[in-house]
Design a protein around this nucleic acid. Structure first.
Lengths: 185, 185
DNA sequence: GCTTTCAGCTAACGCCATTAGCTGAGGAGA
DNA sequence: TCTCCTCAGCTAATGGCGTTAGCTGAAAGC
């Protein structure tokens, strides 16, 4: 029997993809093992437990989101930066609902673990957008929480099937972004 | 052995309370049975399955939230209504995180089932707030989705431990509500 | 009091996460 | 090239969960 050549990163990647495909709540050691052509107990050579795998997926997701945001904001400021950040955020959640769901259950274990650092980079990108509007330093945390709440709320309601009405969801999102833009000026 | 005298409502209520106490993800037939002084299989005389129980908790939660919003909005309009609705919403999620989490996993089975109706009443209360601002009819759905996203996003991030910074969360919430108020005028 | 119903029970099944302990693949060093 | 040793992946087993089958006695109707 030839070896599969796995490591923690490969297991995490397979888990993240499966979470996106099946929904995070259906992530299980069995399906990850199947995907990798291996028996469930073998995974324990690379990750500590299902909870550990979920945490690793959260770190991966936060890192990917942070990188994508940073890339998408290159050279933009003001309303352009806001629109780009908003679109990137929503697009990530829609394309990777399982990865994003993993971040919601994750908790930083210490104040500077890998997950906390990855999350901080996401927030830093959003903070950069706000600074482009000249938000006073005293209000920055509040504005950051507002922006994050709006983006997180919209994206999770959307992927959770919360918007039932027939009205176009893209249009509502654009409306929300313009609403925030006007408010920040 | 005397009977416990259960019915679907009693099981649902116990489940909802336990979801709030333990977290929705720790809701299990075993803990509900323990709470009610009964063995797990007995619960199946009243609810169809754990998934069915979760759906019933979602209906209960949406109904309670709708009633509380309606009560809290009595006689208010404009900014006062917005502040009242926002506070009520956030307070409900904070006091009943398990109940609220149940609503996130729930899906209306048909377009007019009990859960859809309960959710519609929540949204109707928020729509009333918006009408108090004279939001144009064409924008009402967009504004409703924006308001819901902001409230839902803030409340879930808060109960999920998403706000790590030291800055006061109450203050941030008040800032968010004033931001929305200004934008709606 | 007698009958009938059905709430709650015990026993059992299958699925899942996880652990213990084995074995052979494949790299390190001669 | 041969040998040794490490450890990736295996099988077997455990315990906890949701769920079903089938029994029994509590309580409601006559």
């Amino acid at each position: 029997m030839p070896r599969a050549g796995l490591d923690a990163a490969a297991v995490t990647l397979a888990g993240a993809d499966l979470a996106d495909e099946l929904g995070f709540e259906h992530l299980a050691m069995g399906v990850v093992a199947d995907r990798l052509g291996v028996r469930p107990p073998s995974l324990y050579k690379h990750v500590g437990s299902l909870a550990d795998l979920a945490q690793r997926i959260a770190v991966l997701a936060a890192t990917e989101l942070g990188d994508t945001l940073r890339d998408g904001l290159q050279g933009l400021s003001g309303p352009d930066a806001l629109r780009a950040a908003a679109q990137t955020f929503r697009g990530f959640v829609r394309d990777h609902p399982g990865r994003y769901a993993a971040t919601l259950g994750a908790r930083p274990t210490s104040s500077d673990d890998e997950y906390a650092r990855a999350t901080a980079r996401v927030l830093e990108s959003l903070a950069v957008v706000l600074r482009g509007y000249g938000v006073p330093a005293d209000d920055e945390v509040h504005a950051l929480r507002m922006l994050r709440s709006a983006l997180h709320g919209f994206a999770t309601l959307e992927t959770g099937g919360g918007f039932q009405l027939g009205t176009d969801v893209d249009e509502s999102f654009a409306w929300l972004v313009e609403f925030v833009d006007r408010g920040l000026r």
